[in-house]
Write a protein that binds this DNA or RNA. Sequence first.
DNA 1: GATGAATGAGCGTTCATTCAT
DNA 2: AATGAATGAACGCTCATTCAT
Lengths: 194, 194, 194, 194
Amino acid sequence: MTSRRHSRNEEIREASIGKILDAALELFSSHGYEYTSMSQVARQAGISKGLIYNYFESKEQMLYAMIENLQKGEEKYLELFKEDDARSVLENMFTLFFQEIQENTRVWRMITALSLQLDKFDFIHDMAQQKFNAWNELIGRQLLKIGYPNAEKETKLLTALFDGIGLHYLIIREDYPLEEMKDFLIQKYCRYEN
Amino acid sequence: MTSRRHSRNEEIREASIGKILDAALELFSSHGYEYTSMSQVARQAGISKGLIYNYFESKEQMLYAMIENLQKGEEKYLELFKEDDARSVLENMFTLFFQEIQENTRVWRMITALSLQLDKFDFIHDMAQQKFNAWNELIGRQLLKIGYPNAEKETKLLTALFDGIGLHYLIIREDYPLEEMKDFLIQKYCRYEN
Amino acid sequence: MTSRRHSRNEEIREASIGKILDAALELFSSHGYEYTSMSQVARQAGISKGLIYNYFESKEQMLYAMIENLQKGEEKYLELFKEDDARSVLENMFTLFFQEIQENTRVWRMITALSLQLDKFDFIHDMAQQKFNAWNELIGRQLLKIGYPNAEKETKLLTALFDGIGLHYLIIREDYPLEEMKDFLIQKYCRYEN
Amino acid sequence: MTSRRHSRNEEIREASIGKILDAALELFSSHGYEYTSMSQVARQAGISKGLIYNYFESKEQMLYAMIENLQKGEEKYLELFKEDDARSVLENMFTLFFQEIQENTRVWRMITALSLQLDKFDFIHDMAQQKFNAWNELIGRQLLKIGYPNAEKETKLLTALFDGIGLHYLIIREDYPLEEMKDFLIQKYCRYEN
DNA sequence: GATGAATGAGCGTTCATTCAT
DNA sequence: AATGAATGAACGCTCATTCAT
């Protein structure tokens, strides 16, 4: 009985935490972390301000939890690329990347913005570093397999390229030729024959 | 006499505005726009809080003026690249870019961060768009001259690459292999022979 | 069966109430009433926040019950002094007093602090009044027996003296010459010969 | 002109600080420090909440300034007792003490209450210690002059006695025989003949 | 032109208390 | 009897902005 109650409570907790983090993601990604108040988050989540503090110690810790959540989602991406054929892997990656920044533009922008606040949020720096290394490694392996010249350096170029394109798209939006860039990139890197 | 007094006043105005904008740049670039208070700006500028409002309608308008100032500075850069030899122009540009993000990292970071706040600061979007076009045109012209294949698309790639490298450097800082990237880029694009 | 269940429940009630009051005493005396939250009391007692409100209507009523408990303990003290010899009674009293403020300094301090909050806690005023009278009476009787001159007034002096010494000790702590005061007092009042 | 403006501002500042500290003293002494909100202080002072923070860094610092003010007032008391005749000094002291706790009961109570919060307000401890020493020294000198036996120890008794009487009066108020105590004390210590 | 005292809305956070389970 | 999720009023404090001088 205790355990049933316990698990029932656990469900409630999860539900509330979910509502809060969803609301936070929605608001932070559309108006920015510092322009979103805890009151707004509570209202958007349909709960009281006080409840947030049952689950998170502070606004910053809530942000941290939210980011952690996003990271877990991203780790699944990396799992997807286990196939043998390097060219397919690259092409899938490219496709996914362009799809991602189109579909989750606001989230992507939020993360980029937070990444630039090094002195405010240490954990973001670590996360960015880690992500940078993971993608570098994954892409680097494919380029080596393909026999792309200067694979190591081209890899760093390629990751910078991705984030650069993302940045331009975040800022310029509909005026940015995203499709065109995608096709060109795929042709250049995935169709490459040495 | 009136005109002399007038011009004397003009001088004072310019001086005060200069002090304010310098202070704002210093503080915004090191702590961020939203984490800098008008009191701090006044203290840093060595003037009173009220005086800022003699010259600027609001904090945001002050930011706007500050950004405008920076833009004027940048336009001079573009003037520098008037030589005939496309390869020298590219190489100079590359060198200047890397020098710039190393020397003015904080300012660069501030601008990038502000650029991501589209809904807050409309003028940033226009500015970014304009800058994007200007560099695209300049670089595109050089690549065409060199006879670089797919010049138009490569140009967009190259500008994205720049901003991607800048972004990575802003985030990862000392762990980012900036010199290595610079040499590789120069070799790849400026030493290119068709 | 009903009565057995009833008495079983009674035991549980007593146990819970005991745990709560112990926790409250511990926390109120070390951090103060207004700096102790109900959550802290619940945690310290090892029970849930809600349970406290099964037994006490409010934080203040819980304080009231806690104070009542302490008072019952003190009444037992007064019982101890039934001997014939006034000088022994006085000496025992003095000794006990000094022992008490040394061993239960924090509790003593809490009570003194609460006593000063007349407008917040009416019951404290009554309690203090009662205590004042009881000790005055007890001490007065002894001084009369001894034949101490101005016994009645000296009694009031003596009770004030006690609380004054207590207060000084509470505030100055290790720098206060408690032992010295004790010996001097005993010599002055208990060794007195008319 | 600047100096005239400066001094005009200084006046305004002093006036505002005065209003704030008066309001704080009034409220802290009648309801207690932790039961008085900054909003209440502002309302009582007839100013806005924000203005308080122009002059004091925090609620605690405001308390500190208020206490300092009181201390300055008290130091003047000690100055008053410079006469030759020890018995007059003592009698004046006694009279002043009883007058003081009658006229400024609430302030006296507030200070006593704060003194008991050692862990919250360090500066109170120092102040209490200092005050304790000053009065001990002053009284001790008089008793020595009079030739009172055990002068040193009687001094400590006497200061404790004062604070004990004060404490009892603070708690029991109208039921406490203040006049009676005063007369008895004066007779006992000031009329003493060895 | 320049000052800085003053405002007040809003912030992040706390906590006594309630109530469905 | 017991839980702890949920509330909401209030707290101390900040800061862009105004305005009398």
